[in-house]
Design a protein around this nucleic acid. Structure first.
Lengths: 238, 238
DNA sequence: TGTGACCCGTGACTAAAGTCATCGGATTCC
DNA sequence: GGAATCCGATGACTTTAGTCACGGGTCACA
């Protein structure tokens, strides 16, 4: 997806925006208002999009790729807050309360983002109140996500959180003779920062789950012979 | 604050709403639109306002008293997400995304809440886009609060979280010959659910902080001889 | 004045989380 | 073909968190 000719690019972008949850069912000219102002920006895998504490200049919409939102501790530990893919908006909130970014954002793959400035976005919301309601809906989901993280951190063990992550991955996995199967795309380090722990504990708990017969690992391929067993593991006192 | 005569009550309520962050600088008739539709409801201390999982019928604004928003685990542990006082809105978000309440709300003292139904509030936002932006600003603060909780849970120890809570209380405390002084209004149980642990650990860590000379306890009165020491304790690797 | 209902504090213990160090396999880059 | 690098696994250990059981204080109410 290189740099395309202008008119063609605009057309495809309008079509893209039209299906982003935050801009769904905007009219033609509302969309073109946006397209004319949005800046497309490419990021390489691992590149920082914004850093915690930066003043917030606008919001982003993921066109392709993924953005990981995370906090870093003084000792270097990371805690992932969200990973947003195509169609999702990123950093909608700091746009409105005028504060700094509360966390950092980094591209997880090669990623293309549309940037909408604070001013343009606020203007859009004022002119089209429907957009503001959409934003609120999207933000609602984000808030639920954060509450879910708090719940897991406060109430459950590393093992439980890992099982829960595996279950989510398994549900998106492929069926095979031995059961449901999927690749662990992320490193243990990465997984650790998603579930709020350190890489060693991810490794150990993967082994424990394997020893318990709940999963099987061959390299980075995980097989879940019986989803029911994994579900039970997750369900067990949470 | 009993049940007042209608006109007088409406007047004072309009004045009250006018200074709530979420409704600041609405016009006269926008306010009266609200006042005519808002329902005032009283809750005794400890009374449930809404429960996690309930379908969301509207939002609340705290007129007096406090509402605690919290999650409960299967094993009975609680995790406090927020405590909202006069002027604050409660449950703004589920109004927009149509989902259930993600957590429960309970009155912490005798409390008066104004209830605004989902329909009325959405209508207000559509007619007065400024209100929607205000809501977004308020929601932004809420999000920052949740992120801060995640950060503390993921990166810090019980001792640190307790020290951090004490520091916040101390800053609102009174000066006295022996240093800054304040009452621990909440029980250890209550404190535990605010910082994500159990009552025994609160008790033990209070003792530890006292042993370290950072605080002094006489009954439920805490004296901080030197705020600097408490700040240092909080600052120490977070 | 007894008797619950709470709440605090603590000792003794178990379990979970985290740290440190080490080994080995895989990949990449001269 | 090394050398460097990255990543995973794991043993040994320390620290922190959490559980259980109990004793003792306060308060309110019969």
């Amino acid at each position: 997806m290189g740099i395309m000719a202008d008119p063609k690019e605009k057309l495809s972008r309008a079509a893209f925006l039209a299906q982003a949850p935050i801009f769904a069912d905007l009219s033609e000219n509302e969309l073109s208002f946006l397209v004319n102002r949005a800046l497309s920006k490419r990021y390489r895998s691992g590149e920082l999009v914004f850093a915690e504490g930066d003043p917030c200049s606008g919001m982003y919409i993921v066109e392709s790729g993924f953005v990981k939102i995370f906090k870093t501790s003084a000792s270097g530990r990371e805690q992932v807050l969200a990973i947003d893919g195509p169609g999702h908006s990123v950093a909608e909130l700091p746009v409105f309360d005028g504060g700094k970014y509360p966390a950092s954002g980094v591209a997880v793959q090669d990623t293309v983002l549309l940037f909408v400035s604070k001013q343009d976005f606020q203007a859009l919301c004022l002119e089209h109140p429907q957009v503001a309601l959409k934003v609120l809906r999207v933000v609602g989901r984000r808030l639920r996500g954060l509450v879910a993280i708090i719940e897991e951190l406060s109430f459950t063990t590393v093992r439980h959180r890992l099982a829960s992550l595996l279950l989510r991955l398994a549900r998106a996995g492929r069926h095979s003779p031995g059961g449901v199967e999927f690749e662990l795309a992320a490193s243990n380090q990465e997984i650790a920062s998603q579930i709020g722990t350190v890489r060693e504990l991810v490794s150990r708990n993967l082994s424990r789950l394997q020893a318990a017969g709940i999963i099987r690992m061959t390299g980075r391929t995980i097989t879940v012979p019986e989803i029911g067993a994994l579900e039970a593991e997750v369900e067990a006192q949470e």
